[in-house]
């Protein structure tokens, strides 16, 4: 079920993409990262398409036709905790979702791991762009 937080997620990911554009070191780290990532929050799908380390577009699902390289599936409350200024233990890293059973990673995990610092720092940008 959506709470008041989830309807704004597409805008939140877009703001994170804008914040990403202001991080030259992430442009460098993501220079070889041109992939679509599925982020699914409480069953709602968001397809984030990156090109050479820049977030080109955010497309809301559902979609059965959008190919993606890897997926992060998580519940909204866990994601909200992850984006707290100082997240509590187990919610401070995307792998915490997996460890606590609050989320899962699917697809080409090696593609994620090869770009792990880039993707983790992109996801953490939500801490500075999240809306109250």
């Amino acid at each position: 079920m959506k709470d008041q937080y989830t309807p704004n997620l597409a805008a939140q990911f877009t703001r994170m993409g804008q914040a990403l554009a202001e991080k030259p070191h992430l442009a460098r780290l993501g220079a070889l990262f041109s992939e679509t990532v599925l982020i699914e929050v409480d069953g709602q799908e968001y397809y984030l398409t990156f090109h050479r380390g820049a977030l080109e577009r955010v497309t809301e699902g559902p979609s059965r036709q959008t190919p993606w390289r890897f997926a992060l599936r998580v519940d909204a409350e866990a994601l909200k905790k992850f984006w707290a200024p100082i997240p509590e233990p187990r919610f401070h890293d995307i792998f915490g979702f997996v460890k606590t059973g609050r989320g899962r990673l699917d697809g080409d995990i090696l593609a994620l791991v090869k770009n792990l610092r880039f993707f983790k720092e992109f996801m953490a940008l939500g801490r500075i762009t999240v809306t109250a």
């Binding site: 100082i86 997240p87 401070h92 792998f95 915490g96 791991v113 983790k120």
Partner: peptide, 15 residues
């Protein structure tokens, strides 16, 4: 090494 560092950062406190 870079992948290992990115993984173990999961074990470092954000503060």
């Amino acid at each position: 090494g870079e992948m290992g560092a990115a993984l173990v950062s999961a074990n470092i406190a954000p503060q």
